[in-house]
Amino acid sequence: MTDEIRRIINDHARLPVDISALAVDADLYQAGMTSHASVNVMLALEDCFDVEFPDRMLKRSVFESIASIAAALAELQVGVAA
């Protein structure tokens, strides 16, 4: 799952740094992800994992790192059935 998240961030977060150099707990916003780019990341995640993030999850802290995104997806049962 982490690899997929990395790929989506690489494609949509428009970071000025190389995503492969970022630790799973690195702050994506500090790394240069804008609010607008984060919306595109969320859309791509919903599409890729076939989920809908509920409103309570649609906040900065949920999307601030690869680890926090993975935790959110786990909470939405992504990967459990597979």
Partner: peptide, 12 residues
């Protein structure tokens, strides 16, 4: 512009 972007993902 900000709202337009957020509305793509916000649910309620």
């Amino acid at each position: 512009q900000t709202n337009a972007s957020l509305l793509l993902i916000a649910k309620e």
